[in-house]
Amino acid sequence: MNIMQVEVVSNEEHIFSGEASFVVVPTLTGELGIYPRHEPIMSLVRPGALRLTVPGGPEELLVAVSGGLLEVQPDKLTVLADVAVRSEEMDQARAEEAKKAAEARISQAQDDDSLAKAQAALAAAIAQLKTLDYLRSQKNK
C-alpha cells in the first residue's frame, strides 16, 4: 500500500502524526492533492480544511488550518499551521461567534500588534467555518 508519514503541528499543539494515503491541503494557489512519492515542494497554506485519507479509516480526517507552511517530501508531508483544530473539536456557533469577535477587534485595533492578533483569530475562525461547511456538504451527498 502506498502511504506517507504526515505531521500536522500548530503553534499550540501536535494535531496529527501518522500515515496517510492521500492528503488535500488548501494552499494560496488552490487545493493541492498529494499522494505518496510526490515531488518535493513547499507552499504557503491558506485558511481551510486539511483532508487526510488514513489507511483503514472509514472516512477523511479533517483539520481546520488557519494558514501556515506545507513541506512535501516523497515519503513525508509536514504542515506547520498557525492554528489547527480537529473537526471533532469544532462547533458552528462558537466558530461564528469567534469570527464576529475577531471582526470587531479588527475594526477597533489601535496598533499593528492588536490588528495582527485579531486577523489571526479571524483566519482561525474562517478555517473552522470552511471545514464545517465541507463536513455538511459531504453528509448531504
Rank of each mutant, 00 (worst) to 15 (best):
V83D: 09
A123N: 11
S137I: 05
A93H: 00
L129Q: 02
L132T: 12
A116L: 11
L80M: 00
S107A: 10
P55S: 09
D133M: 05
Y35E: 05
M4F: 06
S107F: 15
S17F: 14
L61Y: 11
M1W: 11
L122E: 15
E12G: 03
A104D: 13
S10A: 14
P26H: 04
V6K: 12
L44D: 08
V72N: 10
L129K: 12
V45E: 00
E13I: 11
D111T: 03
A20D: 08
Q110N: 15
I15V: 15
R105Y: 03
Q108V: 08
L52F: 08
I106C: 01
H38W: 06
Y134L: 14
L50W: 08
A84I: 01
D112E: 15
K99A: 15
A109Y: 01
E97F: 06
H38M: 04
N140W: 15
F22Q: 14
E59C: 04
V8E: 06
G18L: 10
Q138H: 08
S43Y: 09
S21E: 13
I3H: 09
A49P: 00
L129P: 01
A121C: 07
F16V: 03
L52M: 10
K130Q: 15
E7H: 05
E60M: 09
A102G: 02
I106T: 03
A124W: 07
G57F: 06
T53H: 11
E89V: 09
K130T: 09
Q110Y: 09
P36H: 06
L52A: 11
G67M: 06
I106R: 04
A20E: 00
K76C: 09
A93I: 11
E7C: 12
K130N: 05
D112H: 14
I15E: 02
K99P: 03
E59N: 13
H38C: 01
Q119Y: 10
I41M: 07
D75Y: 03
R37K: 12
E103P: 00
V63L: 01
A127E: 10
P36C: 02
E103T: 03
L28Q: 15
R94D: 10
E7W: 01
L62D: 05
G30N: 10
S66Q: 00
H38Q: 07
I106H: 02
V25D: 01
D113G: 10
G30R: 12
E12H: 13
Q110F: 04
R94C: 03
E89S: 12
A120N: 07
R37T: 07
K76Q: 03
L52R: 07
Q5M: 14
Q5I: 14
F22I: 09
R94T: 05
V45W: 00
A20G: 08
P55F: 04
D113R: 11
K141N: 14
T53A: 13
N2P: 02
L132I: 14
L122K: 15
D113S: 14
M4H: 04
A123D: 07
S10W: 13
K139F: 07
V24H: 04
K117S: 12
M1T: 15
V24A: 10
K76W: 04
A104H: 09
A102Y: 02
P26L: 03
S17W: 12
